[in-house]
Design a protein around this nucleic acid. Structure first.
Lengths: 112, 112
DNA sequence: TTTAATACATAGAATTATGATGTATTGATA
DNA sequence: TATCAATACATCATAATTCTATGTATTAAA
């Protein structure tokens, strides 16, 4: 597990990216995919993931459809057109930021 | 300028790294070097930098010596032994985190 | 039948960067 | 010489975001 603060600013980008890959995911599914791709190093907390999804919904980046699997509720989230374009700009920003960090901390590693 | 949240968790690592390179720097010098290396994209605010330095001092990672250039005060900060080892672990953590982000968001770019 | 996994939620705490504001010196320029 | 930009520090309230703790409830497996 990483320092709590490192995830800040990247969680929403992660969610945008995963939704753009899968079109339709529910919270717990996002949790599992992040866990898997991060080799168990990012274990999203309920208290992080669900409020984040709600905020992104309020901000118009994602919508959801409720579905009942048996009696269990699922909220399937998907990107809105706004979310789609936010994804692109936020990923670009993150990429740029990481390149900048590389330059500052790891000393011009990526000579692109 | 990047989203405010992206810097969270990385500012102290940046400071640790720059101090380990230069042995001795004052706040404004750190500001200028970060500005330069980031191509003007990270412009540390007084309200971010000075409180961060004070916190790192409280945490025992850095110390300082006051110096007077004419009548102007400067606080030259330097790494303590604790700060030296914190630097190593925090940089490793950040490197690892960035690799994980690569895997999640940019899809296995660095096949190391 | 008990436990782990699934699936959602909220409230309060903690952390940290920012904005706003303040003081004061120094060098350049008009 | 007067003014402005740059230098150099500081604090406080605010904003944003993740985490901890807690809660409810279903389902599958042991």
């Amino acid at each position: 597990m990483y320092s709590k603060e490192l995830l800040k600013g990247t969680l929403s980008v992660i969610i945008l990216k995963l939704l753009s890959e899968h079109k339709r995911m529910y919270g717990y599914e996002i949790f599992k995919l992040v866990k898997e791709r991060s080799d168990e190093k990012i274990l999203l907390k309920d208290g992080s993931l669900y409020p984040a999804l709600q905020k992104m919904n309020r901000d118009g980046l994602i919508s959801f459809e409720k579905e009942y699997i048996g009696k269990r509720v699922r909220k399937y989230y998907y990107l809105t057109p706004e979310g789609e374009s936010a994804k692109t700009t936020h990923i670009e920003e993150l990429k740029d930021f990481m390149k900048t960090l590389d330059k500052i901390i790891f000393n011009q590693l990526n000579p692109i």
